[in-house]
């Protein structure tokens, strides 16, 4: 894995209370995020990628969701063991997060500038005047046109792309070590998507921070990340440098994802959907969670597959890895 890890998750199990009893949306997740680069976390909706992000910041919906086991180490501490007050000093400060829906993620009754200044005053102890100047500077850095006059605007006066820029400005305000971006471009127009991804990449390099980019879109990962992990049914099933992952995917699920991607198949090629649907977390088969949809399943799949290194720096959780 080379570079030092900014954050390392081990054995994470996150449960949700349901009428059928507790159900694990994430189960046995291990993940080391490399420092100072953008790391992609890919998977279909419902695979547990957003739950993983919310578990890191301990922002799971209460009282339904809770972390049942595991540890999340960040800057020498286990986030899961921290008292709430210490956790609040990390949120928005050392680890920040941007969300999928820029339309609803900003508070509609507070000016955009105020929502940025709030973080600066809370974590960096700036005065009102300093915070305002800094907020204007941040809006300029995220490419907001006419940043000073935008400070007094309310979210409904901004376009979707501009709102996401404002969200990024909030996330950047305290120069975090890690920024989690949960589907930051999914709700935006395609042209705006490219701009926002470019912005995130540029800021990542400028600030030297780590970015965890969560997405269902393999194209987004290809454009932005150096390394990525694929998640299925609450666990990481494959991890590799992006170039390697795209050239020689090892896990049958990853292969299936590429086969159902128009850009990867190319003109005239045939799209092949993965048969079946993601199983409900309460109804996972014993052993490999993907076995029922896999084109090469065999007897061994009923046992838990090992996390094995297929090639240098390329790992997969499969009994018969390809590639």
């Amino acid at each position: 894995m080379g570079a030092a890890a900014v954050l390392s998750i081990s054995g994470l199990r996150t449960e949700f209370r349901t009428r059928r009893g507790p159900v694990a949306a994430v189960d046995g997740l291990d993940l080391e995020l490399p420092a100072g680069e953008t790391f992609g976390l890919v998977g279909e909706s419902g695979c547990g990628k957003s739950v993983t992000a919310l578990s890191i910041l301990r922002l799971l919906p209460r009282p339904a969701g809770r972390v049942a086991a595991g540890s999340i180490r960040f800057e020498g501490e286990d986030l899961l063991a921290l008292p709430e007050a210490a956790m609040r000093r990390i949120r928005g400060n050392r680890i920040s997060m941007i969300f999928q829906e820029p339309m609803t993620s900003l508070n509609p009754v507070l000016p955009v500038g105020f929502q940025i200044e709030e973080v600066l005053r809370k974590h960096r102890g700036l005065s009102a005047r300093e915070a305002r100047a800094e907020a204007g500077g941040l809006l300029a850095r995220v490419g907001m046109p006419d940043p000073q006059s935008r400070l007094d605007d309310y979210p409904h006066q901004l376009s979707g792309g501009m709102r996401q820029r404002a969200m990024i400005a909030i996330a950047l305000a305290c120069r975090p070590a890690l920024m989690i971006a949960d589907e930051p471009t999914t709700a935006l127009d395609v042209t705006i998507q490219a701009q926002i991804l470019e912005l995130i990449s540029r800021l990542q390099a400028e600030f030297g921070m780590s970015v965890l980019l969560i997405t269902h879109d393999l194209g987004v990962v290809a454009e932005t990340c150096r390394e990525a992990a694929v998640m299925y049914a609450g666990r990481i099933v494959e991890r590799a440098a992006v170039a390697r992952l795209y050239a020689r995917p090892a896990h049958p699920y990853t292969v299936g994802l590429f086969r159902s991607l128009p850009r990867a198949v190319g003109r005239g090629g045939k799209l092949t959907p993965i048969p079946g649907t993601v199983p409900h977390p309460a109804e996972l088969p014993p052993g490999c969670a993907f076995q029922e949809r896999c084109f090469q399943r065999h007897a061994a799949c009923r046992e838990d597959p090992p996390w094995a290194e297929v090639a240098t720096g390329h790992f997969a959780r499969c009994w018969k890895p390809l590639g």
Binding site: R88, R89, M97, F99
Partner: peptide
Amino acid sequence: RTARAKGL
């Protein structure tokens, strides 16, 4: 959720 993610 955003407000909580800001550490307020």
